[in-house]
């Protein structure tokens, strides 16, 4: 062994070092690009204090507006989840490469990729143009994102199943539908329920936002309150939204425990 390697057992990892320096340089560069200066920070803190000051106490008067918006958000989330879950089953099955012929899976995968690649807000914008302002546009946007999420993971779950059980069912002479029901579904049901409940939570979160672009629900009310500087009402809405999301998580947790 050479004396040099004995003295320095830690050869410099040049790629890692270069990467760290590049990351640091980038951070400084990007921060300067956004004019992240000390004075701006201080002004921001000052604004933040005023902002918080105007937020408190939360406004407790406009119950009507809050109720209408929140209930519409919940309705959007529920309908979109039901439709999304139901539609995800066939799409996911068609996308599973171990069950379907190649060309079918490519079509289904293309559909899933299309549903996935746009943020629900952008999809909502397009549906607002197509079906007008209101809850329908929000529902359709969330259905699209539900299919993108559930069908993709469902297809992946199906591709991971043990084919031995499927073979065993097929060997009994069962038809294709029976093979699905007895050989495939039991193996993936628990995971499907997991994806579905996760997406229900996600839909609930997004249903409070699609209103910003005209998709119905509390989002419109929230955005208007921001634009009118009604920060005390903003706080009321935010607290309600967070409470709703937490209740939603409790319910979906209960659902998961009941069915898995």
């Amino acid at each position: 062994m050479s004396a040099a390697s004995r003295r320095n057992p830690f050869p410099v990892n040049w790629p890692a070092r270069v990467a760290w320096v590049a990351l640091a340089a980038y951070t400084v560069y990007a921060a300067s690009l956004f004019q992240l200066t000390w004075t701006r920070f201080l002004t921001g803190i000052d604004n933040g204090a005023k902002f918080l000051d105007r937020m408190f106490p939360p406004l407790l008067g406009k119950w009507d507006l809050l109720w209408v918006g929140m209930s519409e958000s919940v309705e959007i989330a529920l309908i979109a989840s039901a439709l999304g879950v139901v539609l995800s089953v066939p799409v996911g099955l068609l996308a599973a490469r171990n069950l379907m012929p190649g060309w079918v899976t490519w079509l289904a995968r293309g559909l899933i990729a299309l549903c996935r690649s746009f943020h629900p807000m952008i999809v909502a914008i397009l549906f607002v143009k197509s079906v007008g302002f209101g809850a329908l546009a929000g529902i359709m946007a969330l259905v699209v994102s539900s299919i993108g999420f559930i069908a993709k993971l469902f297809a992946e779950a199906i591709e991971e199943i043990s084919l031995k059980q499927v073979e065993a069912v097929r060997a009994t002479g069962a038809g294709f539908a029976n093979v699905l029901i007895m050989g495939v579904i039991p193996q993936v049901l628990a995971r499907f329920i997991g994806f579905a409940t996760y997406q229900i939570d996600s839909n609930l979160r997004n249903s409070t936002m699609v209103g910003i672009v005209g998709g119905g629900g509390i989002g419109a009310t929230l955005f208007t309150a921001f634009q009118r500087f009604d920060y005390d009402f903003v706080l009321t809405i935010l607290i309600t939204i967070i409470a709703l999301i937490m209740v939603g998580e409790i319910v979906s947790g209960w659902m998961r425990r009941t069915f898995q």
């Binding site: 062994m1 004995r6 003295r7 320095n8 057992p9 830690f10 050869p11």
Partner: peptide
């Protein structure tokens, strides 16, 4: 920073040799 004292590094190599794994150091 992996700045172990030089005597520690020497000692580590001696021990690696004593357990017969000097060539596996890295």
């Amino acid at each position: 920073l992996r700045r172990y004292p030089a005597e520690d590094i020497d000692g580590a190599f001696e021990l690696l040799e004593a357990v017969g794994l000097a060539e596996r150091a890295g």
